[in-house]
């Protein structure tokens, strides 16, 4: 185990409407086995010992699955390691003497709550608009009544793996939410169970997304930043679904293509 000394430049902001600034905080004696968030825990313990306010940041599972952690590290969403959420990043990826810049997600749809914590409720609004299959409790048919080809289930699962962290939005120069929205649209629209609401779903979700987020200009930064490496192919799929929804004769929806 090695020990390194790093210096943090951390964004501090007292509240949504306060002006923010960078604090420079030396972080000596960091073991390289530590996770990035364990390093922040230690820094916070030292801040408290000095009578200062701990740095506010979102986190919970620390296993890369809940999507709560959300840091811009040296200008990259979730930091330098590809396909890795902040909580799974380890200090062995940094070198002695490094200066590490830590910022919150920056996007108008994600207002800053405090320090490094942002409000991502806009994602929930997109799901509320249509990101579901209407299947009220009770009365579901036997689960094996509709065989689903493994390839279809696998493709749906690839999309469903999205953890809703918002790195895609943070990485996008336009703060667009296409990757998040398309992952959910594709998960549900690919499955046989999702067919009944297929066009209504994509319309409602895309319209809500456009109200709240910027527009996509195909930069592809989102896929690069995604800790689950969700493919931008899903954006193409969503766009084609959306287009179809505009042309579809609604009365014939049950006879899908």
């Amino acid at each position: 185990m090695k020990e390194i000394n790093v210096t943090l430049k951390v964004w501090r902001q007292d509240g949504p409407n306060a002006a923010g600034h960078f604090d420079t905080i030396p972080a000596p004696g960091i073991k390289d086995e530590m996770s990035f968030l364990e390093m922040l825990d230690l820094v916070n313990e030292r801040l408290i010992a000095d009578g200062k306010d701990a740095i506010v940041f979102d986190h919970d599972c620390r296993e890369g699955i809940c999507g709560t952690c959300s840091l811009m590290i040296d200008g990259q969403a979730h930091g330098p390691q590809k396909g890795t959420a902040t909580c799974q990043l380890h200090m062995r990826k940094f070198a002695d003497g490094d200066e590490i810049v830590i910022e919150p997600w920056r996007a108008t749809a994600f207002p800053i709550v405090k320090d490094l914590m942002v409000d991502r409720a806009a994602f929930d609004r997109i799901i509320e608009a249509g990101g579901f299959i209407t299947a009220e409790t009770g009365g579901a048919p036997d689960a094996n009544i509709t065989p689903i080809p493994k390839t279809v289930a696998d493709a749906a699962m690839d999309a469903a793996a999205c953890i809703g962290c918002g790195a895609c939005v943070a990485a996008c120069p336009n703060s667009a939410a296409q990757l998040f929205t398309s992952a959910k649209v594709s998960h549900l629209n690919l499955l046989p169970q999702g067919q009944a609401e297929r066009y209504k779903r994509v319309e409602a979700m895309v319209d809500t997304m456009e109200e709240l987020f910027g527009s996509c200009t195909n930069h592809g930064e989102c896929e690069e930043a995604c800790p689950k490496s969700i493919s931008i192919d899903f954006i193409a799929l969503m766009n084609s679904e959306y287009l179809k929804s505009k042309f579809k004769n609604r009365k014939r929806l049950s006879q899908h293509d």
Partner: peptide
Amino acid sequence: QMTAQGVPFAREYGG
């Protein structure tokens, strides 16, 4: 219930 809601449970090749 969960299948009807679209949970992509693992499947065999036959579906």
